[in-house]
Measured scan of single mutants.
Amino acid sequence: TTKIQIRLADGSRLIQRFNSTHRILDVRNFIVQSRPEFAALDFILVTSFPNKELTDESLTLLEADILNTVLLQQ
């Protein structure tokens, strides 16, 4: 498993454990389930350093190389 910290656009944080085989789409779905107010918003996930937009949501967390990292919601 891996721990992902997500810094949300409103300044708050979410921390969740995922399997390395989960997909970026699963992280997006977790955000929307945790904070339904973001469901209607068009947002992207970005790595904190170096900044990289995670546009291919079909990638696993392992394939995207974002295990144990911080993601930013923009």
Results as ranks from 00 to 15, higher is better:
Thr47Pro: 05
Val27Leu: 06
Ala9Cys: 15
Arg35Lys: 05
Phe30Pro: 00
Leu25Tyr: 13
Leu67Gln: 13
Thr1Cys: 15
Val46Gln: 01
Arg35Pro: 04
Glu57Met: 06
Leu14Lys: 03
Thr47Phe: 00
Ser48Asn: 02
Leu67Lys: 14
Leu8Cys: 00
Ile44Trp: 00
Thr55Ser: 09
Asn51Ile: 09
Ile31Thr: 02
Leu14Glu: 02
Thr47Trp: 10
Phe49Gly: 15
Thr60Ser: 09
Ala40Ile: 00
Val32Ser: 11
Thr47Met: 11
Thr55Gln: 09
Phe38Val: 05
Ala64Tyr: 06
Ile24Lys: 05
Pro50Tyr: 05
Phe30His: 08
Leu41Val: 14
Ile66Met: 07
Leu67Cys: 15
Leu71His: 12
Lys52Ala: 00
Thr69Phe: 00
Asp10Phe: 15
Val70Cys: 14
Val70Gly: 15
Val46Arg: 10
Pro50Gln: 12
Leu14Met: 07
Phe30Tyr: 09
Ser12Glu: 06
Leu62Phe: 12
Phe43His: 04
Asp65Gly: 15
Arg35Ala: 01
Asn68Ala: 02
Phe43Glu: 00
Gln5Cys: 15
Leu54Arg: 03
Phe18Tyr: 11
Leu54Thr: 00
Leu41Asp: 12
Ile15Trp: 06
Ser12Thr: 13
Ala9Trp: 11
Leu45Gln: 02
Asp10Ile: 01
Ile15Tyr: 13
Glu37Ala: 01
Gln33Trp: 02
Ile24Phe: 04
Lys52Cys: 12
Leu25Lys: 15
Leu8Trp: 06
Phe30Val: 10
Val32Arg: 04
Thr60Arg: 06
Asp56Ala: 08
Ile66Ser: 04
Pro50His: 12
Phe18Asn: 08
Thr1Glu: 15
Glu53Asp: 08
Ile66Tyr: 08
Ala40Trp: 05
Pro50Met: 06
Thr55Cys: 13
Leu61Tyr: 12
Thr21Met: 10
Leu14Pro: 02
Arg23Leu: 00
Gln5Ala: 13
Thr69Glu: 12
Gln33Lys: 12
Leu25Trp: 11
Gln73Pro: 00
Leu8Ser: 01
Asn51Asp: 11
Thr21Leu: 05
Arg28Met: 01
Asp56Asn: 11
Ala9Asp: 00
Ala40Met: 10
Ala64Arg: 00
Val32Leu: 11
Glu57Arg: 02
Arg28Phe: 04
Ile15Thr: 11
Phe18Met: 05
Asn51Gly: 10
Asp65Ser: 04
Arg28Tyr: 00
Phe43Leu: 07
Thr2Phe: 15
Arg17Ser: 13
Ala40Gln: 11
Thr69Asp: 13
Thr2Gln: 11
Ala40Pro: 08
Asn68Leu: 01
Gln74Ala: 12
Phe38Ile: 01
Asp26Asn: 03
Ala64Gly: 05
Gln33Arg: 10
Phe30Asp: 10
Asp10Pro: 07
Asn51Met: 13
Gly11Trp: 07
Asp26Thr: 01
Ala9Met: 12
Ile4Thr: 03
Glu37Cys: 07
Arg28Asp: 04
Leu54Trp: 06
Gln16Trp: 01
Thr2Gly: 09
Leu54Lys: 11
Pro36Leu: 06
Lys52Tyr: 07
Arg35His: 11
Phe49Ala: 13
Asp42Pro: 12
Val27Tyr: 07
Ile66Lys: 11
Leu72Tyr: 15
His22Ser: 15
Asn51Ala: 14
Ser34Ile: 11
Thr60Cys: 10
Leu71Ile: 14
Arg13Gly: 09
Glu57His: 04
Arg35Met: 00
Asp65Leu: 10
Ile31Trp: 02
Leu59Trp: 11
Thr21Glu: 10
Ile44Val: 13
Gln16Ile: 01
Pro36Ile: 00
Glu53Arg: 12
Arg23Lys: 15
Asp26Ile: 11
Glu63Gly: 05
Thr60Ile: 00
Gly11Ser: 10
Ser48Gln: 13
Asp10Gly: 05
Phe38Arg: 03
Ser34Met: 11
Leu67Ile: 11
Glu37Ile: 05
Gln33Thr: 07
Arg17His: 12
Leu25Ser: 15
Thr60Ala: 04
Arg13Trp: 14
Asn29Ser: 13
Gln73Ala: 06
Arg28Leu: 01
Pro36Gln: 03
Leu14His: 11
Ser58Leu: 03
Ser20Gly: 04
Leu59His: 06
Lys52Gly: 00
Leu41Met: 13
Leu59Gln: 11
His22Thr: 12
Ser58Ala: 02
Lys52Val: 11
Leu67Phe: 12
Ser12His: 02
Ile15Asp: 06
Ala64Thr: 01
Asp26Tyr: 04
Asp56Ile: 15
Glu63Ser: 06
Phe30Met: 03
Arg28Thr: 01
Pro36Ser: 02
Asn68Glu: 08
Leu59Cys: 07
Lys3Asp: 10
Val70Ile: 13
Arg35Trp: 04
Gln16Gly: 15
Phe18Trp: 05
Thr55Ala: 07
Ile15Val: 12
Arg13Ile: 15
Thr69Ile: 09
Pro36Ala: 03
Asn29Val: 01
Leu25Thr: 14
Leu72Val: 14
Asp56Trp: 05
Ser34Phe: 06
Ser20Ala: 13
Gln73Thr: 08
Phe18Gln: 01
Glu63Ala: 11
Arg7Glu: 15
Leu25Ile: 13
Val32Phe: 01
Leu59Ile: 13
Asn51Trp: 13
Phe43Cys: 06
Glu57Cys: 11
Ser34Arg: 10
Glu53His: 13
Ser48Phe: 05
Phe30Lys: 03
Leu72Cys: 12
Asp65Cys: 11
Arg7Gly: 00
Thr69Gln: 06
Val27Pro: 09
Gln74His: 13
Ile66Leu: 15
Glu37Asn: 05
Leu61Gly: 05
Thr55Lys: 13
Leu54His: 06
Asn51Pro: 13
Gly11Cys: 02
Ala64Glu: 01
Phe43Gly: 00
Gly11Glu: 04
Asp26Met: 01
Leu8Glu: 06
Asp42His: 04
Arg13Cys: 10
Asn68Cys: 04
Arg7His: 05
Thr21Pro: 02
Glu53Trp: 07
Arg7Ala: 09
Glu53Gly: 03
Ile15His: 08
Leu45Trp: 00
Arg23Asn: 13
Asn29Arg: 07
Leu61Val: 03
Leu59Ala: 10
Val70Pro: 15
Ala39Gln: 14
His22Cys: 15
Ala40Phe: 10
Thr69Met: 08
Lys3Cys: 06
Phe49Met: 03
Val27Gln: 03
Leu72Met: 09
Pro36Arg: 09
Thr47Cys: 07
Thr2Ile: 14
Leu25Ala: 15
Leu59Met: 14
Asp42Ala: 03
Phe30Gln: 00
Pro50Trp: 06
Asp56Val: 03
Val27Trp: 07
Ile44Cys: 11
Ala39Lys: 13
Leu8Met: 07
Phe38Cys: 09
Ser20Gln: 11
Ile31Ser: 01
Ile66Arg: 03
Phe49Leu: 09
Ala64His: 02
Leu25His: 10
Leu61Lys: 03
Leu61Thr: 02
Val70Met: 05
Val46Leu: 12
Asp42Gln: 02
Thr2Asn: 10
Pro50Thr: 13
Glu57Asn: 09
Asn51Tyr: 15
Thr47Asn: 14
Thr60His: 04
Arg13Phe: 13
Leu71Lys: 08
Arg35Phe: 13
Ile24Met: 00
Phe38Trp: 07
Ala9Leu: 15
Asp56Met: 05
Thr55Trp: 10
Ile24Cys: 00
Val27Phe: 03
His22Gln: 13
Leu41Gln: 13
Leu41Gly: 10
Asn51Lys: 14
Leu71Arg: 03
Leu8His: 08
Asn51Gln: 15
Ala40Lys: 12
Ile66His: 09
Ile31Gly: 06
Leu14Arg: 05
Val27Gly: 08
Leu14Ile: 06
Glu57Trp: 06
Asn68Thr: 04
Val46Tyr: 09
Thr55Val: 10
Thr69Leu: 03
Gln16Phe: 01
Ile44Gly: 00
Leu45Glu: 05
Pro50Leu: 09
Asn29Tyr: 09
Leu62Tyr: 12
Asn68Trp: 01
Leu61Gln: 00
Leu72His: 12
Asn51Phe: 14
Asp26Ala: 00
Leu25Pro: 03
Asn51Leu: 13
Ile15Gln: 06
Asp42Leu: 07
Ser34Val: 12
Asp42Ser: 08
Arg28His: 04
Phe49Gln: 14
Pro50Cys: 01
Ile4Met: 10
Leu41Glu: 13
Arg7Pro: 02
Pro36His: 00
Thr69Tyr: 12
Leu41Phe: 12
Asn68Pro: 10
Glu37His: 09
Val46Cys: 14
Ala39Gly: 08
Gln33Glu: 09
Phe49Lys: 13
Glu37Gln: 05
Val46Asp: 00
Asp65Thr: 00
Leu72Gln: 00
Leu45Val: 09
Ala39Cys: 06
Arg13Thr: 14
Ile31Arg: 06
Leu62Glu: 15
Arg28Gln: 09
Thr69Gly: 15
Ile44Met: 06
Phe18Leu: 00
Arg17Asp: 14
Ile24Val: 08
Thr60Trp: 01
Asp42Arg: 01
Arg17Leu: 06
Glu37Trp: 00
Ser48Ala: 15
Asp10Met: 00
Leu41Trp: 10
Glu37Ser: 08
Thr21Ser: 11
Ser20Phe: 08
Ser34Lys: 14
Ile66Pro: 00
Gln73Ser: 04
Leu71Asp: 07
Ile24Pro: 02
Glu63Ile: 06
Ile66Asp: 06
Gln74Lys: 12
Thr55Arg: 12
Leu72Ala: 05
Leu61Ala: 08
Ile15Phe: 11
Ile44Asp: 09
Leu62Val: 12
Arg7Tyr: 10
Leu45Gly: 01
Val32Ala: 06
Pro36Val: 06
Thr47Ser: 14
Leu59Phe: 08
Ser58Asp: 07
Ile44Pro: 01
Asp26Cys: 10
Glu63Trp: 01
Gln16Arg: 10
Ser12Ala: 06
Leu14Cys: 02
Gln5Leu: 07
Val32Gly: 06
Asp10Ala: 02
Arg35Leu: 06
Ala40Gly: 13
Leu25Arg: 15
Phe43Val: 03
Asp42Met: 07
